[in-house]
Nucleic acid binder design. Structure first.
Length: 582
RNA sequence: GCCCCUAUAGCUCAGUCGGAUAGAGCAGUGGUUUCCUAAACCAUGUGCCCCAGGUUCAAUUCCUGGUAGGGGCACCA
């Protein structure tokens, strides 16, 4: 992550609310400044210096140097221009530096190092004053507007209501939930959506399976169909339905009984899924029922549209879509020879429906077993006239559960899958959510159940939460000793190495949020929060907050409050609690 | 056979648009508390960045080809 920091201009800024555990900040004055990242300012400085020196334009990227000693920010622009300008990179770098006009007086030092890096060191006072601005921004710290209000739909989990949710859903749920939060933080209008496949063949199979178990319970031994659901939970469903409805379905003919039981079982499963998601703190904007599309025959209208574009044909009694004309490996069936619409066919209608509801871009989060399905949906969307980049899929790799250091073997057939709810209940919601967003989406995630349950320093969740609790405790202690948080504190007293290091870290928050949103990745945020916690703990250990030196204490209280703001903001995005005491 | 993902320290993993001496946590070792929470801090070692080519002033990063591991290739979802 590159460091980000702020420059303050005297422009009007909207009102804000201040986060505080104790309400001591209620008298805070309103900010009248707009926040701008230091990187953007530096990039502009370098760009105009470049124009001045060489009459050249180039995209200037400001990054964080590998070594802290080299400075706060750096750019390699001189290295990149060496060829086109036919000049040694160091010469270019020197000339750029000569032409830099630091109008905001932000810079303490600019050096040219190595083969031609330009390193910038910001003044201490800039870092110090950022503490006040972070507190002032409150929960808006890290917000941006580049999403421009664009409507984005993020569909995730969408597990079949034919069985309990497994651990992969827990990863997808945490990921999708946090992604939406991140996107909205940078100005998008992103929404969470869950698609419920409550129609079609699989649901009929569920009905038949429940019916078999139900009849068996009623004394009429019946086998579960070969392709049906064999899991224990089906017996549970049958038991519940028998308890609620007695034997009223026994005398019905098979078709009728299956249909009735299928409907009732489905309602129970969907209710269960909704409950698990709610307890996991995922609040979907939309629970979309496949049956609502089928009722309106929307999927047949899609077929008509594809037909009219001459993109379908009949073969072997089935109706095919020419998906290979849009990059799919082969054509796909829309209507089977039995005359049944495929899942795919309804799915096309579903995705188009999202567009018709006003979403400009769609993101689906799928498991690795669905990657082969991407091309055909993409093909369908293109066939219907939507640009390729409007439909996106992010594959979330698998989850391996580890217990006692051993991989827990899971098999659907053997019925020993680990349910999402079990894991969440066992390790706690905070730990589960944190662990499930810790890894890059492309990587399989090893979930160490024992580690997630540990209440010790090895567990990263507690490390971050402990930092927050510690801060709350110290501020409380300070209050008891007659110290109040005051925005007028003299921040120039924050000079210790640990203090500056912590402040610099706090200023990276907006950059981390931006990177997550831009890359559609969540794992940078928990990693960053661990860094903030580390910087804070280090500061805390080496510096007392509550001292005889009242001015210094007040300055340090400000630093603590700013740190608390960042931790709270970060945890809030992850929807993990920020405890006041541990 | 075809497609997707992965390969970096003993272990689990970061590493942004290719840049300066490749990082963190855990484990190991040694230390820190008359003091606001020790669920904490400090010190300490380790790397054919899977292999071979290519592009480039510069490759862990991009391209090609391998090797190994995981997943997927239905008129299921």
């Amino acid at each position: 992550m590159s460091i980000s920091s702020f420059i303050f201009f005297s422009l009007p800024f909207e009102n804000f609310t201040v986060l505080s555990a104790f309400g001591v900040m209620s008298n805070v004055r309103k900010s009248t400044r707009i926040i701008m990242k230091a990187e953007i300012y530096l990039a502009q400085c370098v760009e105009s210096a470049l124009k001045q020196a060489y009459d050249t334009e180039a995209k200037v990227v400001i990054e964080k140097p590998r070594q802290e000693a080299w400075g706060d920010f750096a750019t390699t622009v001189a290295l990149g221009l060496a060829k086109s300008l036919r000049t040694a990179p160091r010469v270019i770098a020197d000339k750029i530096v000569e032409n830099i006009k630091d109008e905001a007086h932000l810079l303490d030092k600019i050096t040219v190092d190595g083969p031609g890096f330009i390193n910038f060191t910001l003044s201490k006072s800039h870092w110090q004053s950022s503490v006040r601005e972070i507190i002032g921004a409150g929960e808006k710290h890290g917000n941006d507007t580049w999403g421009n209000g664009k409507k984005i739909n993020i569909e995730f989990v969408s597990a079949n209501p034919t069985g309990p949710l497994n651990v992969v859903s827990a990863r997808a749920a945490a990921t999708g939930d946090v992604l939406v939060e991140l996107l909205n933080k940078v100005g998008f209008a992103a929404e969470r959506e869950y698609y419920i496949n409550d129609a079609g063949r699989q649901i009929r199979l569920l009905g038949a399976s429940v019916a078999a178990r139900y009849l068996t319970l009623c004394g009429k031994n019946t086998a579960v169909p070969d392709e049906g659901y064999q899991g224990e939970y089906v017996i549970g469903l049958a038991e519940q339905l028998k308890a609620e409805h007695g034997e009223e379905f026994v005398e019905l003919d098979d078709l009728e009984r299956n249909a009735r039981l299928s409907k009732l079982a489905l309602e129970k499963m969907v209710a269960l899924h909704k409950k698990v998601m709610e307890e996991y703190r995922v609040n979907y904007h939309t629970w979309f029922y496949e049956s609502s599309l089928r009722k309106k025959d929307v999927h047949f209208k899609i077929v008509d549209e594809l037909k009219s574009k001459n993109l379908t044909y009949e073969k072997d009694g089935a109706l095919w879509f020419k998906s290979s004309e849009f990059g799919d490996a082969k054509d796909r069936v829309l209507v089977t020879k039995e005359g049944e619409p495929t899942y795919f066919m309804v799915d096309i209608a579903y995705h188009q429906d999202k567009f018709e509801r006003g979403f400009e871009t769609l993101y689906d989060l799928w498991g690795p077993d669905h990657h082969g399905y991407i091309d055909r949906v993409s093909a369908a969307m293109q066939a219907l006239g939507y640009a390729k980049e409007k439909f996106n899929v992010r594959i979330i790799q698998q989850v391996n559960m580890l217990r006692d250091g051993e991989l827990v073997k899971m098999s659907k057939r053997a019925g020993n899958i680990i349910e999402m709810n079990e894991v969440v209940q066992e390790v706690g919601i905070d730990a589960a959510r944190f662990f499930f967003v810790m890894r890059k989406l492309d990587s399989p995630l090893d979930f160490d159940i024992d580690l997630a349950k540990k209440r010790s320093d090895e567990n990263p969740v507690y490390y971050v939460q402990y930092a927050h609790a510690r801060i709350v405790n110290v501020i409380q202690f300070a209050n008891e000793n007659g110290l109040e948080l005051s925005l007028d504190a003299d921040l120039s007293l924050l000079e210790a190495n640990e203090e500056i290091a912590l402040i610099r870290k706090l200023n990276e928050f907006p950059t981390v949020i931006g990177a997550c949103a831009r890359l559609m990745e969540v794992h940078h945020l928990p990693a960053y929060l661990m860094e903030v916690a580390a910087a804070f703990h280090s500061f805390y250990h080496n510096n007392r907050v509550v001292t005889d030196d009242r001015k210094l204490s007040e300055a340090r209280m400000m630093l603590l409050e700013a740190t608390r703001c960042v931790l709270l903001n970060g945890l809030k995005i992850l929807r993990i609690s920020a405890p006041d005491r541990m």
